[in-house]
């Protein structure tokens, strides 16, 4: 009995250990790595994937998946960008409209999955394509940049700014991680998410509305994509139709690195945070070591498979009783 408990803790520690190992190797290999500026840079580079991975954590624990988030990100970014650029409504209104659009698009995914009963993989594969077309359509195939002062001088742009050299977006991300952690661990909704993914039948028989639990997770996902889109717009000062492409896989990778099970029921926000940090660290490290850029994705692939392999070994006994 005791042994099993230890194993579970090890699973959480596993991600942390991987991160520490990467940090140690990097700090030996590169003198610049441990400098404050570089560390801040790593966290900054975590923001976009990190925020989206939060939503993916809810979905994966609930036993679902969302492949459309890269496109959803692009659509909300283009939508917000268009409104900012042509000053159709005040920036604050753009901010909230963009978030609303994200939630709506997440709900479309969620409704198709829970009410029309199409598997999430297929629904979001479809909406990945559809939402991408929306992103192109909004800008007529063109990127949007050179925003007017009404936008760039507004409070929304402070999301991309720095305070005492620390990017504001880091605080946004950390706040979201903390809220998500509380939501998942301390509320009845989080409890229901774990139960729904762990055993939908048992959860349903326990009086949990598993359809709504999943629908809300999709809505959260859409909301977080929109947040990431706004942060990115403010930071880069430009939005492109192709932005976010491939982000869905990065987010899934971060969640899986963090110890979640694709079959549902298992995963933590802390794990996802560490997973996202690992991904950014690996990318950062490879740049510092001047590894050719085309090796980056390959190396991250290796890390993901290794991490899951280690996790599988830890959880080997779980399914045997």
């Amino acid at each position: 009995m005791k042994e099993k408990r230890k194993k579970k803790q090890l699973g959480e520690l596993g991600v942390f250990a991987v991160m520490v190992i990467i940090f140690v190797i990097m700090s030996i290999a590169s003198p610049v790595f441990l400098k404050a500026n570089n560390l801040i840079n790593i966290v900054r580079q975590t923001v976009e994937i990190g925020i989206m991975a939060i939503g993916m954590t809810f979905l994966i624990i609930a036993g679902e998946l969302d492949l459309s988030i890269g496109s959803l990100f692009a659509t909300t970014a283009m939508f917000g960008g268009y409104l900012f650029k042509y000053e159709i409504v005040p920036p604050t209104a753009v901010f909230f409209l963009t978030l609303l659009l994200g939630i709506l698009m997440g709900c479309v995914n969620g409704l198709l999955v829970t009410r029309v009963k199409i598997p999430s993989f297929i629904v979001t594969l479809g909406t990945m394509k559809i939402y991408r077309s929306f992103a192109y359509a909004i800008g007529d195939g063109q990127s949007i940049g050179q925003f007017p002062e009404s936008a760039s001088k507004s409070w929304v742009w402070s999301l991309g700014a720095k305070i005492n050299g620390i990017p504001v977006q880091i605080f946004v991300m950390l706040a979201l991680f903390i809220i998500a952690h509380i939501l998942l661990k301390k509320t009845t909704y989080g409890y229901q998410v774990y139960a729904t993914g762990g055993n939908p039948r048992a959860a349903h028989l326990s009086g949990i509305n598993i359809k709504n639990v999943r629908l809300i997770a999709f809505a959260i996902m859409g909301f977080l994509c929109a947040v990431a889109a706004l942060v990115s717009t403010a930071y880069l000062g430009t939005v492109t139709t192709t932005s976010g492409a491939g982000r869905e896989m990065d987010a899934i990778a971060a969640v899986i690195l963090g110890g979640a099970a694709l079959s549902g029921g298992r995963g933590t926000i802390l794990g996802t945070f560490l997973g996202a940090i690992i991904m950014a660290t690996v990318k950062n490290g490879m740049v510092l070591l001047s590894v050719p850029v085309f090796w980056q994705d390959g190396f991250i692939g290796v890390v993901v498979i290794l991490a899951v392999l280690v996790d599988t070994l830890f959880h080997k006994n779980d399914s045997e009783r």
């Binding site: 774990y194 139960a195 055993n199 048992a202 959860a203 099970a261």
Partner: peptide, 9 residues
């Protein structure tokens, strides 16, 4: 096992 318990909890 199938209907009563969530084994991951």
């Amino acid at each position: 096992r199938d209907d009563g318990l969530v084994t991951s909890m």
